[in-house]
Design a protein around this nucleic acid. Sequence first.
DNA 1: CCAAAGTTGGAATTGACATTCCAACGATGC
DNA 2: GCATCGTTGGAATGTCAATTCCAACTTTGG
Lengths: 207, 207
Amino acid sequence: MKPEQQQKRRLTAPGRKTRERIVEAAAELMFRHGAGGTSIPDVQAAAGVSASQIYHYFGDKQGLVLAVVDHQTDAKIAQQRPLLDNLDSIEALREWCDGAGDRLDAAGCEGGCEIGSLASELADRDQSARTGLAAAFDRWEAPIRSGLARMQARGELSPSADTDALATALLAAVQGGMLLSQVRRSSTAYRQAVSSVIDHVESHLVR
Amino acid sequence: MKPEQQQKRRLTAPGRKTRERIVEAAAELMFRHGAGGTSIPDVQAAAGVSASQIYHYFGDKQGLVLAVVDHQTDAKIAQQRPLLDNLDSIEALREWCDGAGDRLDAAGCEGGCEIGSLASELADRDQSARTGLAAAFDRWEAPIRSGLARMQARGELSPSADTDALATALLAAVQGGMLLSQVRRSSTAYRQAVSSVIDHVESHLVR
DNA sequence: CCAAAGTTGGAATTGACATTCCAACGATGC
DNA sequence: GCATCGTTGGAATGTCAATTCCAACTTTGG
């Protein structure tokens, strides 16, 4: 039975630490060079471990990729909290999007989105990665949806607004805008894309 | 001097045909498996050519990738013409987006966008590919921008509307929506994303 | 303390891939 | 018709990746 299939593998303290170090190194490398562009020897060197350790903890490269997907999802959610929990005003939405835009600029518009890049690469090539990435987007979209729903429940948004569709549209604008910005090396596209969708949400405001 | 650096390489009739066959086979493979996931032997088998032919016409793998980027750009523009040339009404915008949505469904939401997938994979790994992809998005966005500008010039769109930003937002919605749909295996996200942006354009209509 | 189980290092295996080379074949223009 | 240059086949080369194996070492629970 492969490690990644076991329900609960017993890990000692140093084991947990090593595993974590491998995932973090792999996540960084795969963010910069893609999953396919990251070799096991690369991860070994970056994490300072031997091959047997990687195979011991993840079974094979696919197992490592899956662990990286989960790790990046947790990291993304954690990074954007508490903003994500309070997306129930136009100002909060703009602040959240602006933060990502500023981070884009700070990185020179390189790298794109940690989740989106993996998604584009893996969606059609690894069924379980696709499932994990779908879950990642769902976890990411949920707070947006919930924030918009609260605005609507409070009567701030018109009852005719489809808040679920708006949440999806906003997430899509983030992804598409980041891709265009990454290619153009300018955050303008990202900012225009998200701004348009937020403007559209704003047009549903009551009063 | 490598072939891809030469200004004009003389090609005989069979040479042109072989070159074209290689690019088409490579484009198809790279669409399905990514540029990194497509090997020269793969292309050889799919196009029915020998290795020396590929290196003769493209110099190296990067040269082939560049040729594929250009080929896919031309193909995308050609495929969406004449729709792209007449995006100067809300109905035309919806029809154009619906067409892409229907194609998405027809493919079972697999594959995503031929340009976007390459962009995500190559933007940070190949400077000349990034330039080519930026040009691809510009060529794609230009007709959208121009259609919106015509609507505004005719007085159908409010003078306060930023048509360039709207065009970018629409392209971003297409890209982001396709990515979400590819991961979720449902065209809903794509349709919600583009529909939101078109609704937003519609809100700028005069009268 | 001591067995069982988790952890680690390092070498060996196997296969694929990008690229090069060279010799042969074919079209083309003068 | 012949020399030139484009075209093609196929083998050879060197590198590197994924994975396996096994022996040695360490932690842990009783």
